[in-house]
Design a protein around this nucleic acid. Structure first.
Lengths: 167, 167
DNA sequence: TTAAACTTTCAAAAATAATTGAAAGTTTGT
DNA sequence: ACAAACTTTCAATTATTTTTGAAAGTTTAA
């Protein structure tokens, strides 16, 4: 396999994987492209490589920057903007967990707490509901805290964690 | 908040959360409904509670069973089928990780290996590509193994893990 | 201040994904 | 063998999400 083919395959795969995890395909593809580029890439080049419109490129780059995993870069003497991706994978994972926690898990926890604290009366049905949602609340809270902990570790938390789990 | 309202809120929230993680809304809602039901529920009742068609219910129940997180149940004297969800949350998480690993991560790893082992020639661009995709391969492999490990733990791996991480 | 070189916005169009419902399929009891 | 009681399938429809492209906005340089 030659370079161009490999690069394309990687970008496509990353895009497909993104879709399956609720991330828009183009966003994942742009991210993939930037991850494997050794230098900052212009919007023009992104459009060209992925065959997408200017609007699409602009919006998805904005979204990636909101996630904190893509940065704008300015080159001396150049008017246009260039983009680079966070390339440190521990940092990337930490940022993604932090955002997903903030955007999705925390709000879900709030609802879980609300619904798990209703007055359960005496029916088995209601008791089971309260019991199950309480357990779910605890579980999600614990999982979310674990993600938090990961982001606290300063480097290679995944490797350290795997070692701890082996013991 | 009264029971019916709480239950509905839970089902809606779980459905919305599912969407954000690439799981079809109805599938997540059916799962939510079964999780908090203290007894097995018929397709008829699911259709009624979620206001969905028979076809939709049938297909999503099938998908949930393929994921191994919903089971068919038969009641003596009843012709129709009833459904229950896996209610043990450790077991639920284990099954979900196992399936996602099999369906998405393993195939992605295969591609990552392919593209990271191309002949890198001498350009900085190609060297960076091989370097970055290799790192990504290692990272994803490690994360995937961690998920495997979790499923091996027989009970409350999440709690144990959180304790280990504190140390 | 003007205009060139860019980027952003957003309504409309296109693409994708989910849902319906009725026909076909299956199972069970008589 | 028949028919009642169910479930599954899938082509057509509907809903949702993504993408486009052109107008509006912004920044820089002369």
């Amino acid at each position: 396999m030659e370079f161009k083919e490999a690069k394309n395959k990687f970008v496509q795969t990353w895009g497909a994987l993104g879709s399956q995890w609720g991330i828009n395909k183009t966003m994942a593809q742009i991210h993939a492209l930037l991850m494997v580029s050794n230098e900052a890439v212009s919007m023009e080049d992104i459009m060209e490589e992925l065959q997408i419109s200017r609007g699409n490129a602009s919006m998805n780059l904005r979204a990636l920057m909101d996630w904190g995993i893509v940065y704008k870069e300015f080159k001396a003497g150049e008017r246009k903007e260039f983009f680079t991706a966070e390339k440190d994978l521990d940092e990337l994972a930490a940022k993604i967990s932090r955002e997903r926690s903030k955007r999705e898990i925390k709000p879900a926890l709030k609802i879980l707490k609300e619904v798990s604290t209703i007055e359960a009366k005496d029916s088995a049905e209601e008791k089971h509901f309260v019991d199950q949602t309480s357990k779910l609340y605890d579980f999600v809270l614990k999982a979310d805290n674990m993600l938090d902990k990961m982001t606290e570790f300063n480097e290679n938390w995944l490797g350290k964690l795997v070692i701890k789990m082996m013991k």
